[in-house]
Measured scan of single mutants.
Amino acid sequence: TIDEIIKALEQAVKDNKPIQVGNYTVTSADEAEKLAKKLKKEY
């Protein structure tokens, strides 16, 4: 679900690790936030 994706992003940001979500690779908190907002609009 979208919530699980967002939790995974938040965890990756805390661990400061890049995370791959679908076609996106998120490497920073800023990118994670942008991706989360984008995904919320889509779903």
Rank of each mutant, 00 (worst) to 15 (best):
T1E: 10
T1Q: 08
T1Y: 13
T1G: 09
T1I: 09
T1A: 10
T1R: 11
I2M: 08
I2E: 02
I2T: 04
I2P: 04
I2F: 12
I2K: 03
D3E: 14
D3C: 15
D3F: 14
D3S: 12
D3K: 11
E4W: 12
E4Y: 09
E4A: 10
E4H: 04
E4V: 06
E4C: 14
I5T: 02
I5Q: 02
I5F: 04
I5P: 01
I6K: 02
I6E: 00
K7P: 01
K7D: 04
K7Q: 10
K7W: 07
K7L: 09
A8H: 05
A8Q: 10
A8W: 11
A8F: 05
A8T: 06
A8P: 00
L9F: 01
L9N: 01
E10S: 03
E10Y: 10
E10I: 11
E10M: 13
E10N: 06
E10T: 09
Q11F: 01
Q11L: 08
A12R: 02
A12C: 12
V13E: 02
K14E: 04
K14V: 11
K14W: 03
K14A: 08
K14H: 10
D15Q: 10
D15I: 04
D15T: 08
D15W: 03
D15H: 07
N16Q: 08
N16A: 08
N16L: 05
K17N: 06
K17D: 02
K17S: 05
K17Q: 10
P18V: 08
P18I: 08
P18W: 09
I19V: 13
I19F: 08
I19Y: 03
I19Q: 03
I19M: 09
Q20M: 12
Q20T: 15
Q20Y: 06
V21S: 01
V21H: 02
V21E: 08
V21K: 03
V21T: 03
G22D: 11
G22M: 04
G22Y: 03
G22F: 04
G22I: 02
G22H: 06
G22R: 01
G22K: 01
N23G: 15
N23D: 15
N23F: 03
N23Q: 12
N23A: 07
N23I: 08
Y24P: 07
Y24C: 15
Y24D: 12
Y24F: 14
Y24K: 12
Y24A: 13
T25M: 11
T25P: 12
T25F: 15
T25D: 14
V26Q: 03
V26G: 04
V26N: 03
V26S: 04
V26K: 02
T27I: 11
T27G: 11
T27P: 06
T27L: 13
T27V: 10
T27S: 14
S28K: 00
S28E: 06
A29Q: 06
A29D: 04
A29M: 08
A29V: 08
D30L: 11
D30K: 09
D30A: 13
D30Q: 12
D30G: 08
D30I: 12
D30Y: 10
D30R: 06
E31M: 06
E31H: 02
E31Q: 08
E31I: 04
E31Y: 02
E31L: 03
A32D: 01
A32Y: 03
A32E: 04
A32L: 10
A32H: 00
E33C: 14
E33V: 08
E33P: 00
E33S: 09
E33Y: 04
E33F: 06
E33L: 15
K34C: 15
K34M: 12
K34F: 12
K34T: 11
K34S: 11
K34R: 12
L35Y: 01
L35K: 00
L35Q: 00
L35G: 02
L35F: 00
L35E: 02
L35C: 13
A36W: 07
A36D: 01
A36Q: 06
A36S: 06
A36V: 15
A36M: 15
A36N: 02
K37P: 01
K37V: 10
K37T: 14
K38W: 12
K38P: 00
K38S: 08
K38T: 07
L39P: 03
K40D: 04
K40G: 06
K40C: 14
K40Y: 07
K40M: 12
K40I: 12
K40A: 10
K41Q: 14
K41A: 14
K41L: 12
K41H: 13
K41G: 13
E42R: 09
E42H: 06
E42Q: 12
Y43G: 09
Y43Q: 14
Y43E: 09
Y43P: 05
Y43N: 13
